[in-house]
Amino acid sequence: MDHNSYSDQYLRSILASVKTIAMVGASPHWNRPSYFAMKYLQGKGFRVIPVNPRAAGETILGERVYADLAEISEPVDMVDIFRNSEAAGAIVDEAIRIGAKIVWMQLGVRNDAAAARAESAGLRVVMNRCPKIEYSRLHGELAWSGVNTGIISSKRQKRVPR
């Protein structure tokens, strides 16, 4: 799998298959990037479970914060990693152990060895991307900010819930 570029189809099918996201490195501070992403994804109907040992037991955007992935008792479809590339390695192994189907590493986060382990365990992997940006790009909202989405269509756009 080439992790330098992903087809729209690959990203679409990942985002369409996901209901529950565990967000590792979720911050309780409203002006941090992870908070932006969590709030946006919640608004689009995703369940987002924050994971952050330093905020364990607190609540972020109405969700209880867990200390690690293993502590989460319900099924997790996707693990979204807001940590540095090195730390991502152990989190990916944890994601494999809890039976997640997708590992997503945020903008600037890339760990090819961990990605290879996840892929050989049957998980799908996205690296160095933001699910908020990709979701909004594929659903026409990112274009509202003057961004080149790469999407051309003669079909009337469907509105997505906010």
Partner: peptide, 14 residues
Amino acid sequence: MRDDDKPAGFGFET
């Protein structure tokens, strides 16, 4: 990071 496959797929005039 950006998705290069699609935009490059359409010609300039398109």
